[in-house]
């Protein structure tokens, strides 16, 4: 029994991070109506930038390295939009998608160039997990769940209680109408990219803290985050949270029944089935950041 409980707990931990990735992805989709394939690279860059700062020549302590790393990640996110996506946003959709694949490939190989393809770690000594009722959880993992709750809570506040959040929702609802109403589109798109990169970078850092760093970490997690987006309904922030948790739990519990080699297969198959059976997501909301 504890075995299954532990699997569910691991699922919740993984799911809370997937939710962080998914929220960014879904916000970009909600506003710009395109899937940013390079979203995963923001995850990886967030993690690798921290690695860059804690090693020589910078040798900054870990907790001080996080903030500058996140700032640079945001700059990458905003840069993507400014130099690649904005010039293409009114053109052919396929152009935009191929360009985002190009961005993703460029950023991923830059990581390979600088840090190599090998597995890397922050080099923190492993700590025995805290044990309760036969379950085990490490302090890092508690931090992961805490961070997810904090970030998503802050997002909720922003979307519902501030003017900026309201304009964001308006733009997601109808871009042209929002622009006609005098909403500053530049400000909104900047906010979306900053938030998406912030969430991706922070999630990437936490994930790397818990496991390791590798150049393809962005791609795999992007796909899983996408599964969460689909599950929750594209453009729906709360759906992304529930979707993330669901994917995390499903793939972890699934291991009890399949070979561990099929762990990723489970979430992929789930995406596939969902796309076909419920293209509008479980909550059936296709548009609007709720």
């Amino acid at each position: 029994m504890t075995y299954y409980a532990q699997l569910v707990l691991n699922g919740v931990i993984a799911g809370s991070i997937y939710a962080l990735f998914a929220v960014g992805l879904t916000m970009v989709y909600g506003v710009f109506r395109f899937i940013n394939f390079a979203h995963g690279e923001l995850i990886a860059w967030g993690a690798y930038l921290v690695l860059l700062l804690i090693n020589p020549p910078f040798s900054v302590p870990l907790y001080l390295a996080v903030l500058p790393a996140l700032l640079v990640t945001m700059a990458i996110g905003v840069g993507q939009d400014r130099y690649v996506y904005q010039p293409l946003i009114h053109g052919n959709r396929i152009t935009l998608l191929i360009a985002s694949i190009g961005v993703s490939y460029l950023l991923r190989n830059t990581i390979r160039l600088i840090w190599g393809s090998d597995l890397m770690t922050y080099g923190i000594r492993p700590v025995r997990g805290i044990q309760f009722a036969g379950l085990s959880i490490t302090p890092t993992q508690i931090l992961m769940i805490g961070a997810a709750v904090f970030f998503l809570g802050a997002l909720y506040f922003l979307l519902t209680r501030t003017m900026l959040g309201k304009s964001l929702r308006a733009v997601a609802d109808n871009m042209e109408l929002a622009a006609v109403m005098g909403i500053n589109m530049k400000k909104v798109s900047l906010t979306v990219w900053i938030l998406a990169s912030l969430f991706a970078g922070a999630g990437g850092f936490l994930l790397a803290l818990d496991t390791n760093l590798e150049p393809v970490m962005g791609m795999t997690n992007m796909i899983k985050a996408f599964a969460a987006v689909l599950l929750g309904g594209a453009g729906n922030v709360w759906g992304a949270l529930v979707g993330g948790l669901f994917i995390g739990i499903a793939e972890n519990v699934g291991v009890a029944f399949f070979s561990p080699g099929y762990k990723d297969f489970i979430s992929f198959a789930l995406i596939f089935l969902l796309l076909i059976l419920r293209p509008k997501g479980i909550f059936g909301v296709l548009t609007g950041v709720r």
């Binding site: 152009t95 190009g102 460029l106 190989n109």
Partner: peptide, 20 residues
């Protein structure tokens, strides 16, 4: 290998921007 990958990614973006 990574440089090659970066070139591919960059060319992909460039084509999309300049000569789709």
């Amino acid at each position: 290998a990574p440089l090659q990958g970066m070139v591919y990614g960059f060319v992909l973006i460039l084509i999309m921007l300049k000569r789709p």
